[in-house]
């Protein structure tokens, strides 16, 4: 929590009330986020538990009346990067330079229309979409989780991820193209004809 903010003062009861009424109701979303990041139920559990302990410990930096869910998601994301990712030594595979260039290049006007149609999506009633999401690199996965699963606004995402809004948008754009590529692979293997778009 690098942001320097005015600390709130909470009595013990207030602390408990904020924790119970504003933090705990997000437990299912938090677990889903943890699971989608780590792709492991036990690691997800540890990550969520750790996040809530930190949230309680640093509750004074939580501004009453602000978005508790975004605040919690930010802590979880930071714990994931600082504790979990370090442990697993998994380097980030995303080349951000490349992402930015991609979005700002001429290519942006070229509609990437993979062989994917709304009709073939409707037949994906199993785990296809979930598997497609999980197959993306973690930084791409993260923006889709925050935006599409959890409905965060760009501005909230920028705060959660500590990146500029422009980067949120370009990363999201790239992530969706990769997801579409994955989905069209599935569609293909499900035997759809992709000749007409």
């Amino acid at each position: 929590m690098s942001e320097e903010r005015i600390k709130q003062s909470y009595t013990k009861q207030e602390k408990q009330a904020v924790f119970d009424n504003e933090f705990l109701p997000h437990i299912n979303s938090m677990y889903n986020f943890g699971f989608r990041l780590t792709l492991d139920p036990d690691d997800a559990k540890d990550l969520v538990q750790d996040t809530y302990l930190k949230a309680y410990r640093f509750i004074e930096s939580f501004q009453k009346g602000t978005n508790a869910k975004a605040w919690l998601f930010r802590i979880l994301k930071n714990s994931f990067i600082n504790d979990y990712r370090k442990k697993t030594k998994e380097p980030s595979k995303v080349d951000y330079q490349e992402v930015e260039t991609y979005y700002n290049s001429e290519d942006v006007n070229r509609q990437i229309t993979p062989d994917l149609r709304v009709e073939s999506l409707q037949d994906m009633i199993g785990d296809e979409i979930s598997n497609a999401l999980n197959s993306l690199d973690v930084d791409f996965r993260t923006v889709i989780i925050l935006c599409d699963l959890e409905g965060f606004k760009y501005e909230e995402m920028a705060k959660i991820l500590d990146i500029p809004i422009g980067t949120v948008r370009s990363r999201l754009h790239r992530a969706r193209n990769l997801l579409k590529e994955k989905l069209s692979e599935y569609a293909k293997s499900m035997g759809y004809k992709n000749t007409e778009l």
């Binding site: 938090m30 677990y31 559990k45 979409i129 599409d148 699963l149 959890e150």
Partner: peptide
């Protein structure tokens, strides 16, 4: 599809 298939699980 993402919304309906990838969330809603429980801790």
């Amino acid at each position: 599809l993402l919304k309906s298939r990838c969330c809603g699980g429980e801790a």
